[in-house]
Structure formats: C-alpha cells, structure tokens
Simulated assay, not measured.
Amino acid sequence: MGEKDIQDMFEWAGLSTIYDQHGYKMWLSGLEDSIDAELLDHFADAYSFENAETMFYDEFLFHLRIFKNISNNNELPPRYW
C-alpha cells in the first residue's frame, strides 16, 4: 500500500485533516501495514477529533492502537452462549 492509498483511506474515513497534518509520519512509521480501511472507518466513527489541529501524532497513534486491540480482542467466537 502506497502513500496515495493511505491518503485515500483517510479521506474516505473523514480524517483528511489528520492525514494532512501527520501523513508523512504515518508513511515513515509504516502505519499502512497495520491498519485497513474498515478499521479506520470504525475508528473515525468511535472517536471525535475536535482538536485534530493540535493533536500530536503519538497521541493519534496511541488511540488508534488501543482501538485496534479492543476491536480485535472484543469479538466472541460463534456460539459462545
């Protein structure tokens, strides 16, 4: 996945302001290897980024990693009940 794919994914999720501010850092850190469009879309729905202009990249990455772990570990197997 290239830089343009990441940009498109963030624009599709409605997080283009965050990508504009931190896109280069995302590309350097290899963020595209650990997320997909569906995860990013759910993340954008769950979090409110009212302070996106003042948010540090580390803070954004922290919230994204927590959300990814919660969504991965919060799924029950079929017929759990």
Rank of each mutant, 00 (worst) to 15 (best):
A13M: 00
T54R: 03
S29I: 13
N73G: 15
M9W: 05
N73P: 00
I66G: 03
E11C: 10
A46M: 09
R79A: 07
E50G: 15
E11L: 09
W12C: 08
P77I: 01
S71I: 13
F10R: 01
Y57L: 04
E38M: 12
E3K: 14
I66Y: 04
F56R: 10
E59M: 01
Y57Q: 08
M1H: 11
N74S: 15
G14V: 04
S16V: 10
A46N: 11
W81Y: 06
W12L: 11
A37F: 05
N72E: 14
L76C: 02
A13K: 04
G2I: 03
G23T: 05
F10Y: 14
F67M: 00
F10H: 08
I6E: 05
F10M: 02
N51E: 10
E11T: 13
L64N: 03
A13D: 02
F62M: 10
W81I: 06
N74Y: 01
D33I: 07
E11M: 07
N73M: 09
K68D: 12
D58S: 02
F10Q: 01
T17Y: 07
E11I: 10
H22T: 06
L64T: 04
E3P: 07
D20T: 08
Y47M: 09
D41L: 11
L31S: 00
A46K: 11
I35H: 10
L15E: 04
H22K: 09
I18V: 13
